[in-house]
Amino acid sequence: MKNKFKEFLKGLIKENPTFVLMLGLCPTLAISTTIKNGLGMGVATTFVLIGSNAMINLIRKIVPDKIRIPCFIVVIASFVTIVELIMKAYVPILDRALGIYIPLIVVNCIVLARAEAFASKETFLNSILDGLGMGCGFTLALLLISTIRETLGMGTFFDYKIKGFEPIFLLSLPSGALLIIGLLLGFFNFLKEKKG
């Protein structure tokens, strides 16, 4: 049981997709302007990750080795379509805010990397746990970045206006995203170095 828990936990910090594996930085840079967007993107990606990891794990033995990548992409694309349609139906505002980045989860490196590196080799349960852990790690990273960018860059927290604070507009621009991610990466590397 402890082993299983480890599969889930590693995605959160030790192998965090954004800050350690450096995967999926494109959506991270683009949509982390507000906390809502970050949360929406994180949840959508988590769903796709769990679904695709489970499905790819099931079909791993019948897929010929040479065409495995296209097969993985088809599976991932189906789950992304499910997410996209659900979001369009139930949270149209969020869907409009995230725009093209929801369909682009298909080519998100995290999803394909986990399918290739983990789900096609490990057991079914481990794959699901890995997908869940990676998804949560991605969501946490997005939440961290978007919280900093929204509070400092736009002067709001979950759309509540913070009084008496002049927002640093640069941080809600794309260059601000690069700046924040760079600083956080440096900070985490510093912590890691200090620890061991």
Partner: peptide, 8 residues
């Protein structure tokens, strides 16, 4: 430039 972009 940071100031210009942040508080135009």
């Amino acid at each position: 430039v940071f100031l210009l972009a942040s508080w135009p």
